[in-house]
Design a protein around this nucleic acid. Structure first.
Lengths: 306, 306
DNA sequence: GTCAATCATGTAGCCAACCTACAACGTGGG
DNA sequence: CCCACGTTGTAGGTTGGCTACATGATTGAC
């Protein structure tokens, strides 16, 4: 197939009328241009230029090919321009995986912000636990992952996955209103309570087992709202991250823990896609969403203290 | 600017989904394809492919560029196809230069034939003497030349000009009906006649001076028709090529010469343009036109003998 | 008419780019 | 857990392009 360099040479000669000028335009010697033309003629089996006095003149075939060359070069230019535009535009499709609480408390605002700031970006959301999320990210099923990373059961980030910390999510002990515990306590002192935990396999359950080995919860419930309802009904106690807590139902109250358990909330992406503007924009949106949620929690705590 | 080979590699990977298959399609090793992709990524500063299990997957930027690559490659294909079609099509513009007599006796039929057989060909005609014609051909002002080449004053064909003989045009002596000469004669015996010749500078005049050195014609007239009218009026004698002779006017008759003077009629073109189909087609048309004119002269001679 | 300027085009040689062969690595399936 | 599959890195040979210089041809001026 025809080589682009040859087409460029022909086009330059067609434009500048002389091999010398074409060479200057292409930043090379006229000899190089001449050789390119000669090879183009050999390769196409066509006479493209003819001598014309001191200079030369394109034959009809040469003019024909020069016109086509112009189209080809223009098309290549378009491709480059489109790629350059894509390179620094938040566009395309961005799929995010997040753990359940983040899906509820963080992602709606983040995705809304993203959509309004970047209309060309189409978004998607997948709820999954951090292990699944990391795997989905690694396999390219999603472009961004929002993960909860417990210090006592830390995640393993595969090579090629970059991550940054969004912030720390503190964990409170929630007990029925009339419960004996009050003020500040430690998890060790709660070992004999009736526990409400996440289902087996859930990372929260895994963490709890790691923090309190041998504990045998009486309830296994995934949604924190349900856990709180169970607490308010006086059936047991549970540890609940603040990000997951909306309003405290009647019949439940908070007991501070010391040391305060906490999990890291992390945003992760493939390093290969790190340069993509959509990734950076999404991370910014998540960060904004995080500070907004933190502020909301703070004001809620002030307005309705435990 | 982007290289075509890289675009081809990307397009092949986009089409065949795997570097291996793309390599087979491009008749090279997967390593070569991989390297092309890597360079394309470096050059564009964009991530175009990402690993996906055992194989790989195009990023959005990769898909974008692959789509554009398809357009580019298609445009290049069009260019090649157009050039190939042009290469073996009688098309474009063909300008012919011819000496005066050929313009009248040969070219009308030849150009007509050419136009009817090859509607895509546009033709042009320029009347000029052989020297001017050869120069115009050499300079590229015309594409084909029909020349009269007198053995006694032969043309010099510059390098790069090819020519073939179309045929020989015999020359007769034409005298007034009541003239003393009859049968067969020689030019030498006519030296003392009143001569009608072409204008000074005309190749026919040049030839006559070469054949009969020192001759001083009394009349200098370019058109042979006029010469014959002068002869019929009894004003002198002249040598007239058969190609230029239409009907013999009353008052003029032919005297055969021995040896019979003759001129070669030649078709010439630039060797650089020899491959052009229009050149060959025009030469064929001229040849057909020549045999047709010869046949017409023969029948006219039979029907109206001197 | 001659001479100088201008322009294209060969040639030799250097250099960069490309491709192949081979090995190493990671992945998915039995 | 191992094997097949696919990509990617590396070394080496080859091709191809470009430069510098010389040559040939043409034009215009003195």
């Amino acid at each position: 197939m025809i080589d682009l360099g040859r087409l460029r040479a022909l086009h330059a000669v067609a434009s500048y009328k002389t091999v010398l000028a074409a060479g200057q335009a292409l930043h090379c010697t006229p000899s190089a241009v001449s050789q390119q033309l000669a090879k183009l003629e050999r390769e196409t089996g066509t006479t493209l230029v003819e001598k014309d006095g001191r200079g030369l003149r394109l034959t009809e075939a040469g003019q024909l090919l020069a016109r086509h060359a112009e189209r080809v070069l223009a098309t290549v230019d378009e491709a480059e321009a489109a790629l350059a535009a894509h390179r620094d535009t938040v566009t395309g499709r961005l799929t995010v995986v997040a753990f359940a609480t983040a899906c509820r408390a963080l992602l709606p605002w983040a995705l809304h912000r993203l959509a309004s700031e970047h209309p060309q970006l189409s978004t998607g959301l997948l709820e999954a636990n951090p292990h699944e999320g990391l795997d989905a990210l690694h396999r390219g099923h999603v472009d961004l992952a929002v993960l909860d990373d417990w210090p006592e059961a830390p995640l393993r980030y595969p090579a090629g996955i970059a991550h940054v910390e969004l912030g720390w999510d503190l964990v409170d002990l929630v007990v029925p209103s009339g419960h004996r515990l009050s003020g500040t306590t430690t998890l060790a002192k709660c070992r004999d309570e009736r526990w409400i935990a996440a289902p087996v396999g859930d990372i929260c359950h895994e963490w709890l087992m790691r923090v309190m080995p041998g504990l045998q919860p009486d309830f296994h419930v995934g949604e924190f709202e349900t856990q709180m309802t169970l607490i308010a009904a006086g059936l047991g106690i549970a540890v609940i991250p603040r990000l997951a807590r909306t309003a405290l139902p009647d019949g439940a109250r908070i007991v501070k823990l010391n040391p305060e358990p906490r999990r890291r909330v992390v945003v992760a992406w493939r390093e290969a896609a790190a340069a993509r503007p959509a990734i950076k924009a999404a991370e910014q949106a998540l960060r904004a969403s995080w500070t907004q949620a933190s502020a909301a929690r703070a004001s809620r705590t002030v307005n309705a203290p435990a």
